[in-house]
Design a binder for these strands. Structure first.
Lengths: 215, 215
DNA sequence: GCGTGTGAACCTCTTCACAGCG
DNA sequence: CGCTGTGAAGAGGTTCACACGC
């Protein structure tokens, strides 16, 4: 097994995440072996693509039959670094932050919402989905206790950069942002965005091109 | 001006959406001219990339100075089909659906949450962010009234496919899904996913590769 | 001089087709 | 025989470098 540390494209990693989700679902159905064609169909790509993605990291399949569901899932989780518990903290106890915590992260393979923070003293101490809302001042201490965390930020527009600064300062180096402002981060910190409006734009453009709307 | 109907990659469309967001922000600051370098820095790509993206659709810039903020924004919105009002309806008045409606779509360039639906009779009739929760039975009628819509689905796991079926049946052909199940759609219907768990996986992998966590 | 628009080089990713193994 | 793993071909996207126009 290789499980190498080579540079792999984000596209490949994204697809591995999809394979993992698909395999978890397949596992529940009791199926023990899948083919590259099976994963391909369910993830919307070609079977050669699936095999290429997996071949980067090792030879996980059995020729003539396919891939062992449990074994392949374990390997993909090893590649991604998922599968073991990992704490996710939420910054901003507004509508989105609240909804995320209440929705939970069941079936995602190890992630759990562990803490929520808000700069508004009014909200601090209140309970959300069984977790007390903490003041930002406790960020550093909490992250120190939890160890590695991913922070999801869902603060009002305009407060994103300050929030990121505090997170970085507190030792967090992985952030998922629902805030759309372009955020500055130091070297080494990982940042990604959830952009509903961009997805809507892509859908709109697609509708227009196929002539569904006259624009 | 070309504004052609050629096939353009999703990557390009996604970047145009970012340019548009950036330009709206720039407009507020009162800046009237921007260079490709300016947009590039703020969107995290190369200036040549920005120029290539725009050149696909026409010659929007002035050599020696740059791009007119208002003019370029208008052109990009024309390309994307955005800028004019477009109704967004939400299916599922759970945590996420509720939060989306309350958060609104300010500053996104024309989108508005107009209606929300839920199959639970308990929730129907209740008011969320000023909008009454409607039963699924009214889907077709509402879509007929609104004209073109994009539907955002935020229903519980396992109910996604049934929800999509009803939407398609009711005449909706653009869907943004917070549900992670692989959803079947007929030819011509556009479907995209918001996948928090995939973004977390990408962050986790990235952390692992850079040696931040030992996994 | 400055910044756009663009052909050409470069690089990456995807698809194809098949050898090889169970 | 069926399906994986993979070199080779092809497609697509990005970067480079510079001519051109303001």
């Amino acid at each position: 097994m290789i499980l190498n540390n080579r540079k792999v494209s984000e596209k490949t990693i994204r697809r591995l995440s999809h394979y993992a989700r698909c395999l978890r679902h397949t596992r529940i159905k009791g199926k023990e072996i899948v083919t590259s064609e099976y994963l391909a169909k369910r993830c919307g790509i070609s079977s050669a693509g699936v095999r290429k993605d997996l071949a980067v990291f090792g030879e996980f399949g059995k020729q003539g039959s396919g891939y062992d569901v449990l074994g392949l899932l374990a390997n993909i989780e090893k590649i991604l670094g998922t599968g073991k518990p990992l704490h996710v903290i939420v910054i901003g106890a507004g509508n989105i932050g609240y909804a995320l915590l209440k929705s939970g992260l069941e079936g995602t393979g190890g992630y759990h919402y562990t803490a929520i923070f808000d700069s508004d003293p009014e909200k601090q101490g209140k309970i959300c989905a069984g977790i007390a809302i903490q003041p930002m001042a406790e960020l550093r201490e909490t992250i120190r206790e939890l160890g590695e965390v991913i922070a999801v930020i869902a603060v009002p527009d305009g407060e994103g950069q300050e929030c990121v600064n505090q997170l970085v300062e507190a030792g967090c180096n992985a952030i998922l942002s629902f805030v759309l402002e372009p955020l500055d981060i130091p070297e080494g910190v990982k940042l990604r965005y959830m952009e509903i409006s961009t997805e809507l734009d892509i859908l709109t453009h697609s509708m227009m091109r196929t002539g569904r709307i006259g624009r």
